[in-house]
Simulated assay, not measured.
Amino acid sequence: GWALQLSLLTPYIQMLGLPHGAASFIWLCGPVSGLLVQPLAGYFSDRCKSRFGRRRPFIMSGACLVAAAVILIGFAADIGHSAGDDMTKKTKPRAVVVFVVGFWILDVANNMLQGPCRAFLADLSAGDENKMTHAMSFFAFFMGIGNVLGYAAGSYNNLHRLLPFTRTDACEIFCANLKTCFLIHICLLMCLTITALSIVKEPLVNVVDDERKGGSLMVFVELFGALKNLSKPMWILMLVTCLNWIAWFPFLLYDTDWMGREVYGGKVNQSVYDMG
């Protein structure tokens, strides 16, 4: 899902009529949701007393939100058309609104899902450093496989033939391929989530009641308060990481768009560009 989002959604939102420069504002949700959602998801999952476990409710909720979000994104053009968008005009405002709502839900859901997944691995490792190292290695390995499959699926122009109903009056080949990718993604995501949460037993952990004033807001106080005690090497590491992401995000957001425009000379809504 992450690879599909990075590779296909910037060209897609431009096809719906959003100006090229405005696309970056939509992507602000990623850093913002990462800053806010992951600490909160971690805080509440650590203190969750559900009979299903601490992590399962958040992982399942995140997966369901991801599925709902990609449905909104993939069918944004169709929903906008049904709501009254004029397909002869360049900008489809209703479709853009549906897309933006789905996109922000997707970023929030991704962060809501990833944090508890990593915490679940830590719980299963039970403090064993060797197990934790192997768990995180496999986690990163399968993320890499997912990225390869996501980018590969997005590059195949005839994927929509697997699900012919995805191509409509409001949704041409590029859009239909996107919908097909997302529908396949939903099936894989839900199957894997249900299988993993059903088979893997979550270890029992004593949940400590948090009686501090401020509740969930204290997690941010602690995060920023911890900065005062960081050593110089940690500050350097954080600075390098910050600069790395400043450089990495523009590449992630615009590499597909740049290739289509500058390398292949395409333009949005022209057949060569839309075919990838």
Rank of each mutant, 00 (worst) to 15 (best):
S24C: 07
G62H: 06
M190N: 09
L243I: 00
D128G: 02
P93Q: 00
D107W: 10
G266N: 04
V221N: 10
A41W: 06
H81Y: 15
L6S: 13
F139R: 10
K90M: 15
A77S: 08
G225R: 05
I194Q: 09
A152W: 06
S33T: 12
M15N: 13
C191P: 05
R167E: 06
V37R: 06
P57E: 02
P116T: 01
S198D: 08
S125R: 03
A176M: 01
I173R: 14
M190D: 10
K201D: 11
L106I: 09
G1F: 13
V200R: 04
N269C: 06
S24T: 13
A126D: 15
D46L: 05
M190F: 07
D255T: 15
A77F: 09
P57I: 01
K92T: 01
S24I: 14
K228V: 05
D46F: 07
H20Q: 15
V108H: 09
H81V: 08
L252D: 13
E129Q: 14
K90A: 15
F25Q: 10
P93M: 00
A67R: 02
R118F: 14
V37Y: 05
A3L: 09
L8R: 08
D86E: 10
S33E: 09
F220V: 08
C181P: 01
H160F: 14
M60F: 13
S33C: 13
M87P: 05
A126L: 12
W104H: 13
M190A: 10
L35P: 01
I186K: 07
A126S: 14
P19L: 01
M238H: 09
E129G: 11
L183Q: 05
E202W: 00
I59F: 10
Q38Y: 09
L8C: 04
W27E: 02
D209P: 08
M15F: 12
F99D: 00
P57H: 00
V101P: 00
L189H: 00
L183K: 07
A247P: 10
K213S: 14
L16C: 05
H134W: 11
F249K: 06
S50K: 06
R56D: 03
S82G: 09
A63C: 01
T193M: 03
L16K: 13
K89P: 06
A68Y: 03
L178V: 01
I194T: 12
G276Q: 12
L217A: 15
V219N: 12
D209S: 14
K89E: 14
A226V: 05
A152T: 12
L204T: 15
M112K: 03
I236C: 11
M143L: 03
I194E: 10
M234H: 13
A126W: 07
M60D: 04
V70C: 00
D274K: 04
T168P: 03
Q5E: 12
E202N: 01
V98H: 04
S216N: 05
L121V: 01
R118N: 14
K267H: 14
N130A: 15
I236P: 06
Q38V: 07
H81K: 12
M60K: 09
W245F: 08
D209Q: 14
A76D: 03
Y273Q: 11
M143W: 11
C48N: 08
L239C: 09
F251C: 08
E262A: 11
S216H: 08
V98D: 02
F220T: 10
G260T: 07
